[in-house]
Design a protein around this nucleic acid. Structure first.
Length: 439
RNA sequence: GUGAGCGUAGCUCAAGUGGUUAGAGCACUAGGUUGUGAUCCUAGGGGUUGCGGGUUCGAGUCCCGUCGUUCACCCCA
C-alpha cells in the first residue's frame, strides 16, 4: 500500500465511480443544451483579488491560495460566478443578450470535510445574464428540474423551495423595519426549522415583535403559496409601490413555472434566504424530500454583482448544483448505477493463424462506430468467451477455420447462448448491418 | 476551527483480559478445459495491521503524536 493517500477531501475516481458520475454530467449537459444554454469554461486558477472583492476576507480563509514564482497571489476557484462575471464583463458589448451559458467546473474549497461535503467537487452552473425578466429565473429552475428528472428523480424525491429577497425586504420595510435590521431578520428566517419554535420566538421577539407579530411570522413561514404570503402580509404591511411590484414579480415567476408544467415541484418557502449577500431577487433551493432534507442546489437573482466586478451593471440569475449530494441522493434511491457494462462486440478466434483477419475485422467494426474488443494474445476460445462475458459484451463474433472454410463467421448472442452464421466478407465491409442493432 | 467515534488484503470483516508465522469470503491471476462464457473444483499472488514514536521479554491489541475518515457544532459562494 502506498504511504501517500489522496489529499483530504478529494476523490480518486476509478472507472466504476467515474462512470456513474458521467451519467450525471450527461444529464446536466443535455438539460442545459435543450434549454438553450451554451457551454463555456474558464481557468481553474484566478487572482486571489477576484474573490476578495466579492466575498470579503473571511471567506478567503476557505480558499486554496498559492503564490507563483512571480509573487502573484492566486487561488483555486471556489465558485464559478466571479470567473463568469469577469469573462462576461470583458466582452459585454460584443455579446448578444440575454447571455445563456452553462459550465460544469471542478471547484475547490478548504472546508471541513463531511458526508456530502468535500474539498474538490463538480458543480453544474447555469446563468442568464442581461435580462431582469423573471422568465429567465423560471427557465433556470426548469432546466434544473428537467436534469434531475432525466436522472430518474420525481416530485416525490425533490422540491424547489422559492423565495424572493426583494419581496422579503419590501415586507420588512412595509412593517416599518429599517434597512439596517434586515440582515438580522434574514438570519432568523434562515434558522427557522433548524431551531425550536420557542427559541425562534425569543430571537424574533428581541428585535422585531413590535413590527411583525411572531404569529404573523409563523403564518408567513408556514405558507407554500404566494397568495398565502399576501394574506399573511395584509395583517401588518402597509401598501407600497415596491411591495406591489415585488408581489407581482413573484407571482409572475410562479405563473411561469406553472406554464412550464412543473407546479408540482415548486413551492414558496420564506425560509430560503441563501447565505450569499449578493442575491437581490428570487432565490431558490432544490431539496431532497427524503429524511435528510439536504439542499442539492441553490441559486437566485444577483442583479448587482456584475456591476461590482465589471464596468457595467447587468441583471443576472443562475444556480449551482454540486455532484456530491446529488450522487448520494441518487445512490440512496438505487439510481446511481455503473453504466459501463452491456455494450460492444467481442471478436474471438477459435484457431491459430487468424489474428490478422481478427485485427482487420475489429478495426472495421470500430470504424463503423461500434465498440469492439478482443484479446491481445491468442487464447483458448473458452478464455476469450470468459473475457467477453466479464466485459459485458452481449455479442461475440467467432472466427474459426471450420466456418471460414465456408466463407462465414459465427455470431453468438451471449444472453441466449445461440449463434448464427453470416458471410465473413459482408461483416467485414458492412459491419453495421449485422451488429448495430445488437450492440 | 471545536468535540467525539473509527482506520487490519482492492472490498466486507475475523484475530479471549497484550502471547508462535495476522485469517476468511468476495475480487484478482493461473490451471482443470488448445472450437464455446456464467456454475464447479484446485492452486497462486497480494499485509511495514494508515504513518511515526513510546511502554513491554513480547503490541493489530495499551499510551502519545500525526494523517485520513465518519458524526455533531461552526460555516456553506
Amino acid at each position: 500500500m502506498s504511504t501517500i493517500q489522496a489529499v483530504k477531501g478529494t476523490r480518486d475516481l476509478y472507472p466504476e465511480q467515474y462512470a456513474p458520475l458521467q451519467r450525471i454530467f450527461d444529464a446536466w449537459r443535455s438539460a442545459s443544451l435543450r434549454h438553450g444554454f451554451e457551454e463555456y469554461e474558464g481557468p481553474t486558477l484566478e487572482y486571489l483579488e477576484l474573490y476578495r472583492e466579492k466575498s470579503g476576507d473571511e471567506l478567503v480563509g476557505q480558499l486554496f491560495c498559492l503564490t507563483d514564482s512571480g509573487q502573484r497571489e492566486l487561488a483555486l476557484r471556489p465558485e464559478m460566478t466571479p470567473t463568469l462575471a469577469r469573462m462576461v464583463a470583458a466582452k459585454i458589448n460584443a455579446l448578444s443578450k440575454p447571455i445563456k451559458w452553462f459550465c460544469m467546473p471542478r471547484l475547490f474549497r478548504g472546508e471541513n470535510v463531511q458526508r456530502g461535503r468535500l474539498r474538490e467537487f463538480y458543480q453544474w452552473n447555469i446563468d442568464v445574464i442581461g435580462t431582469a425578466d423573471v422568465t429567465a429565473d423560471a427557465e433556470c429552475i426548469l432546466a434544473g428540474v428537467e436534469a434531475l428528472r432525466d436522472l430518474g428523480l420525481t416530485e416525490k424525491d425533490f422540491a424547489v423551495h422559492i423565495s424572493n429577497r426583494r419581496l422579503i425586504a419590501a415586507l420588512l420595510a412595509a412593517a416599518g423595519i429599517p434597512a439596517d435590521g434586515h440582515a438580522g431578520a434574514y438570519a432568523i428566517l434562515d434558522k427557522a426549522g433548524k431551531i425550536d419554535e420557542a427559541e425562534l420566538a425569543r430571537r424574533w421577539g428581541e428585535r422585531y415583535e413590535s413590527h411583525i407579530a411572531f404569529s404573523a411570522l409563523m403564518d408567513l413561514l408556514g405558507t407554500q403559496t404566494i397568495d398565502g404570503v399576501r394574506t399573511a402580509a395584509s395583517k401588518f404591511a402597509t401598501a407600497s409601490a415596491e411591495l406591489d411590484s415585488a408581489f407581482d414579480e413573484t407571482s409572475r415567476l410562479f405563473d411561469t413555472l406553472n406554464e412550464f408544467g412543473i407546479p408540482d415541484y415548486c413551492r414558496f418557502n420564506m425560509r430560503v434566504v441563501r447565505g450569499l449577500a449578493y442575491y437581490t431577487g428570487p432565490v431558490f433551493e432544490f431539496f431532497d424530500r427524503g429524511e435528510s432534507e439536504r439542499a442539492i442546489c441553490g441559486g437566485g437573482r444577483y442583479d448587482d454583482l456584475l456591476g461590482k466586478l465589471g464596468k457595467s451593471k447587468e441583471p443576472a440569475v443562475g444556480f449551482g448544483m454540486g455532484d456530491v449530494v446529488l450522487s448520494l441522493m441518487l445512490k440512496d434511491r438505487g439510481l446511481l448505477t455503473d453504466a459501463r457494462t452491456g455494450r460492444g462486440v467481442f471478436v474471438a478466434d477459435a484457431a491459430d493463424g487468424l489474428r490478422g483477419r481478427l485485427h482487420s475485422l475489429v478495426a472495421s467494426i470500430r470504424r463503423a462506430g461500434i465498440t469492439a474488443e478482443f484479446s491481445y494474445a491468442r487464447q483458448a476460445l473458452g478464455k476469450q468467451l470468459k473475457a467477453a462475458d466479464k466485459k459485458g459484451c452481449p455479442i461475440v463474433v467467432i472466427l474459426g477455420d471450420e466456418t471460414l472454410s465456408r466463407g462465414s463467421v459465427q455470431i453468438k448472442a451471449m444472453a441466449k447462448g445461440e449463434s448464427r452464421e453470416i458471410p465473413y466478407a459482408d461483416l467485414l465491409t458492412r459491419p453495421a448491418e449485422f451488429l448495430q442493432h445488437t450492440a
